[in-house]
């Protein structure tokens, strides 16, 4: 399977990574090479094989319903690149 340049742009957009026009064809080549490499899997018959959901034979761990975290806004805000009082601040979002 290979990708076209529009797909490269679409995927970059999905991943929120700006891609300059002159990067697209190089990226396309690299993605194509990786996709060609993983193409090998298609020769395997995987009919009826369950996809792995967890590599260890265990099930979900559950926590008790107790409040024992949070209550320290500074701790979660101290690394923010932009803040206003105790809010994170981002360019205006239009809904």
């Amino acid at each position: 399977m290979s990708v076209d340049e529009n797909t490269v742009r679409r995927v970059a957009r999905l991943a929120r990574i700006a891609v300059a026009d002159d990067e697209v064809s190089k990226l396309k080549g690299e993605l194509d090479a990786i996709l060609a490499f993983v193409e090998e899997l298609s020769e395997l018959d995987v009919e009826g094989v369950p996809p792995m959901t967890s590599v260890i034979p265990a099930t979900a761990r559950l926590r008790d319903d107790v409040v024992n975290d949070g209550e320290d806004a500074e701790k979660v805000l101290m690394n923010a690149p932009a803040r206003e009082a105790d809010f994170y601040v981002v360019p205006k979002v239009v809904e």
């Binding site: 399977m1 990708v3 797909t7 490269v8 995927v11 970059a12 999905l14 991943a15 990574i17 990226l27 690299e30 993605l31 990786i34 996709l35 993983v38 899997l41 298609s42 395997l44 995987v46 094989v49 369950p50 996809p51 792995m52 959901t53 590599v55």
Partner: peptide, 30 residues
């Protein structure tokens, strides 16, 4: 590059062919 490959193999229409198949292969490897 890896983020884009990852987004691609999970995207609509490709998920089964890539991700699910890879996880099945993983079962076989295990």
């Amino acid at each position: 590059r890896r983020i884009m490959i990852g987004a691609y193999v999970l995207s609509a229409g490709y998920y089964d062919a890539y991700y699910v198949r890879a996880q099945k292969v993983r079962t076989l490897i295990k």
